[in-house]
Design a protein around this nucleic acid. Sequence first.
DNA 1: TCCATATTTCAACCATACTTGAATCGTTGA
DNA 2: TCAACGATTCAAGTATGGTTGAAATATGGA
Lengths: 110, 110
Amino acid sequence: MDETQALKALSALSDGTRLRMLRFLVQAGADGAAAGEIGAAVGSSPSRSSFHLAALAASGLVRPERVSRRVIYRVDFAALGGLMGYLIEDCCGGHPAVRACCAPTGTEKG
Amino acid sequence: MDETQALKALSALSDGTRLRMLRFLVQAGADGAAAGEIGAAVGSSPSRSSFHLAALAASGLVRPERVSRRVIYRVDFAALGGLMGYLIEDCCGGHPAVRACCAPTGTEKG
DNA sequence: TCCATATTTCAACCATACTTGAATCGTTGA
DNA sequence: TCAACGATTCAAGTATGGTTGAAATATGGA
């Protein structure tokens, strides 16, 4: 993950519709979800959904796969992890206060 | 950290100039750095620097403090950690593949 | 072939964000 | 008060991004 790729991913996530789409796809897990299903879940029209899903796919955070009439989108967890790793290591320098919020318990909320 | 605040922070980080500013401020640590120094470090004009630093401050990721003629900016590591925690827990559902990239060693790059 | 479903693409419009250069504000020291 | 310094604000222009609705593409079934 380099800066250019990180900027693409951050830009993709800085939109409410796309952030909700990603959350929905994370919950969907390995099965993924069809474009129409995702759009319905986040309340966006077909063309809007297509636009935003294309942006997410271009950022590398999700991947499309055509299955019959549908296009199934799945989260690329490795890419998502790569973005987190870049932010924590390269941008935050692995600062303890940042790393603390990534601990499995997740109860040390500031 | 709620979705609105996360979107502000992600939006702030989705710009190359601001991302480099944050990295510079992380390296500066608790001492922080003056606006002019930050601008010089990332190669942006005074007005541009002021604009972008204001955006970072509005997002809560950095905090300004006037010291004599200068304005010292410092990273709010708790806010940064809050953003990471939100992304990992609320958006990524604490998925193992994501969490793996936050491990202290940072060698399990995908 | 014809029709229905699922998704994407396109053009037009609107809104927001970025850049630039000059002007302004606040502080320091003479 | 004046001049110099550091930072911000303002106005104007440019660029990018989002929304909408209609049209187009691709697949599946009769």
